[in-house]
């Protein structure tokens, strides 16, 4: 039985992946409780900490890295992104729509004899069909990426450590999982360069405004 919101291909029963676009925001820390964030100076230490955290049974994690760390998804328990299926489905829809448009305009609405060809010359329509279908796929791909990554022009920083876009790898664990003191000690034991409390609620309410002179989130590492 497909989950609600899932659109399934009527012929094959394959999940078309459209529901992937409607998932809740995975890019922000989950839950009300504040997080303890540890910054690591290198990838290896960070990945080791992620593995250790998962091995210790921690599930409410969030991480920030300057580049895509390959192999991190299974460690953090993230599934494969399904936006590929959504794009494929839309591209197919685009092929059908574009071909249908050409048929409608060239055969039904305003048929014109052009260089002696039949009104319905399917082989000559393949090129626009392909191009428009792929264009539609590309647009959906971009918007799917924007939506799933919650990308929208935003003057606020939601980063626990601004250096995570430079050379820091940051892992945060919710204090709902363990007391703050315990987590801080754990991070230090893992070799984190800096450890601090990071509150998602606080960051949302009082984010560091990107234009200086504005109040910044007090509890972020660089406050």
């Amino acid at each position: 039985m497909p989950k609600p919101g899932t659109i399934v291909c009527p012929m094959t029963g394959i999940d078309l992946g459209v529901a992937a676009l409607g998932r809740p925001d995975e890019t922000a820390p989950q839950g009300e409780a504040p997080f303890v964030a540890g910054s690591f100076a290198d990838e290896a230490g960070f990945v080791a900490a992620c593995k250790a955290a998962r091995a210790a049974g921690r599930t409410n994690l969030q991480s920030w890295t300057p580049y895509a760390v390959h192999g991190l998804d299974p460690v953090l328990g993230l599934q494969r992104s399904l936006i590929g299926r959504a794009v494929f489905s839309v591209a197919i829809l685009g092929f059908v729509l574009c071909f249908g448009m050409q048929y409608h305009l060239m055969v039904e609405d305003w048929p014109i004899i052009y260089s002696g060809r039949p009104y319905s010359s399917w082989s000559l329509w393949i090129v626009p069909t392909l191009e428009l279908g792929l264009l539609l796929g590309a647009l959906v791909n971009l918007f799917a990426a924007f939506h799933t990554c919650r990308l929208i022009p935003d003057p606020f920083s939601h980063l626990p450590d601004p250096r995570t876009t430079d050379d820091r790898f940051c892992l945060a664990i919710s204090t709902a999982e363990a007391p703050q003191v315990e987590l801080e000690a754990w991070f230090h034991a893992q070799g984190a360069a800096e450890v601090a409390l990071f509150s998602a609620e606080k960051a949302k309410a009082e984010p560091e405004f990107m234009i200086p002179g504005q109040p910044a989130a007090k509890e972020s590492i660089h406050a």
Partner: peptide, 25 residues
Amino acid sequence: QRMLYSSLSLGWKGTAANWRHYERA
């Protein structure tokens, strides 16, 4: 500059969930 780049970067965070979808896209 900060206004320019924060608008252009669309609030990019670089979380694991970000990168997962981003790389796929």
